[in-house]
Structures are given as C-alpha cells and as structure tokens.
Computed example of a mutant assay.
Amino acid sequence: MQTDEPPIPSVWARRRAKREQPALSQDRIVSEAVRLLDEEGVEALSMRSLGARLGAGATSLYRHVASKDELIELVVDEVYGEVRVPGADDPDAWREDLAQCARSLRAMILRHPWVASVLGQTGLASLGPNLMGRSERMIALFRAAGFAPGEADRAMNTLIAYVIGIATSEAAYLSLLARSGRTEQEWADGLRSAAERAMREHPLLREEHAAQPYEDPERVREENFTYGLERVLDGLQARLRSAPGRRVIP
C-alpha cells in the first residue's frame, strides 16, 4: 500500500548508496567536516566551504550528503565514536564504570566544543551507529546495576543530561578564551578583582567565594564536574536502594 507521507528528513532514515566515488566518499566528507568544525567553528561550516577544502564543488558533496542538516547528523555521530563505555562485566563497579562514561563524554565535548551548539539540531542523530552503540553499552551498565527496563533509559538520560549541561557551559567558556587569546589562568587572574567588587553587596556569594581557595582554574573545573557527577550517582544509587524488590547496591 502506497502512502503520500513525506520521508523523514534524516540521513539515518534513508538508504545509503551501495557504491560511492572513490575520490570523494561520505566518510571523507565527514572527516573533513569534523576538522573544519574543530578549527573554525560551526559558523564556518557550509557545503561550499567544505567543498573548497576537499577540492570539490558543493554539487559533488550533495551526491553523498543530501543537506547540511544531514551533515550535522553525520559529524555528531562521528565524534560520538570517541566516547568510551566499558563492558558491564562487574555489577558492583557500576558507579566507576558510569563515571568513566561521563568523563569520556565530557572530554569529547571539550575536544569538539561545536557539538554543544548543534545537539538540538540533529534530527534523528540518536539512530546513528556510534550513538546507538554507546547507548546500548550504557544501558547494559544501568541494567547490570539493577535498573529495570524502561527506567534504565531514564537513568541514562539523567546522567547524560548532567554531563551535556556542564560540558556545554565549559565549551562555551573555553571558546571565549580561545577568541580572547588569553590562557585560562590569565583570564581568571584578570577577572578576580572585578568579581570581588561585584560581590561586595552580596554577602552569601562573597562568603562562598572566600570559602573556596583560589586555585588553578582548570583544576577547579575538574573538581566542580566531579562534585556534580558524584551527586548524580548518589541519587541514582539511592533510587536503587529504595526501589522495592531491588538488590542492595553497595
């Protein structure tokens, strides 16, 4: 039975051509697009600019990638392939395994800060092979920990939302630093006196600021990420302990 419904606009919802031109393949286009994004940012990405880097016209690219939106889906899935997810071999090591996943995801976003700005524009990116493969392995960790089918996916999304949220802020901050030409330490040193002046009429903020030692700003970011990650894992662990019929997780 035929239908008039339009196809879903996603690279993962249509069939990939069986054969591609050897000189210009989808894989080569995606690899060069990632390099362009890393070097120049998402604003610089267009089919024309990418074609120029590849020594090909935009029309040639469209034989392999139907649109810029599809290209975004492809590059997001490409960099997700860098995320490392351990096997679910030891149920008692679930916290350590999930923390490793979270750190790997954060590291990927900080290596490719443009990812944070396109995550809401990726259509059916979740159907990409790398993203689906990492999700499958993460679900296995949550299931091994004791989360029931259905809730395991929600628990995974909670952890990922934390990582993406904090890493997006970090990526924006690091992009600002790169444009300024300053090191992170130079930026922090220059901001310190202005921050202290701004907090004069805000006693609670001033007290919190004074309670935290002035340290290497990169180390502070690492400690802030770890603190939030541990609190998210605490919440997931408490859920497992309180759920009826679940085994007690150490």
Results as ranks from 00 to 15, higher is better:
89 D>L: 12
90 D>F: 05
109 I>L: 14
85 V>A: 08
95 R>A: 03
70 E>K: 00
73 E>A: 08
103 R>L: 12
76 V>D: 03
65 V>G: 09
93 A>T: 01
69 D>C: 02
145 A>K: 00
154 R>T: 09
144 A>K: 03
102 A>W: 04
116 A>M: 05
84 R>T: 12
152 A>W: 14
123 G>M: 08
54 L>R: 06
145 A>H: 00
119 L>R: 09
148 A>C: 07
128 G>I: 08
193 S>D: 05
168 T>W: 04
104 S>L: 00
154 R>L: 14
108 M>F: 02
101 C>V: 15
172 A>Y: 06
48 R>D: 08
164 I>P: 00
160 I>F: 12
153 D>G: 12
126 S>T: 03
134 R>D: 00
103 R>S: 11
130 N>D: 01
140 A>E: 06
134 R>V: 07
61 L>F: 11
178 A>V: 01
48 R>F: 07
154 R>Q: 10
99 A>D: 11
101 C>F: 15
137 R>E: 12
73 E>Q: 11
84 R>M: 06
120 G>N: 11
138 M>C: 12
176 L>K: 13
62 Y>L: 15
60 S>R: 13
61 L>H: 08
84 R>V: 14
57 G>V: 07
45 L>P: 01
137 R>W: 05
162 Y>N: 01
125 A>G: 02
66 A>G: 08
159 L>V: 13
67 S>R: 02
79 V>N: 00
191 L>Q: 15
67 S>Q: 04
150 G>H: 09
121 Q>L: 10
154 R>S: 10
181 G>L: 02
84 R>N: 05
50 L>D: 01
122 T>S: 13
107 A>E: 12
80 Y>E: 14
135 S>M: 08
135 S>L: 02
100 Q>M: 12
85 V>E: 04
129 P>N: 12
148 A>P: 04
72 I>C: 00
161 A>S: 14
137 R>L: 08
67 S>Y: 01
47 M>Y: 03
163 V>K: 00
58 A>H: 11
82 E>Q: 14
148 A>G: 07
143 R>I: 07
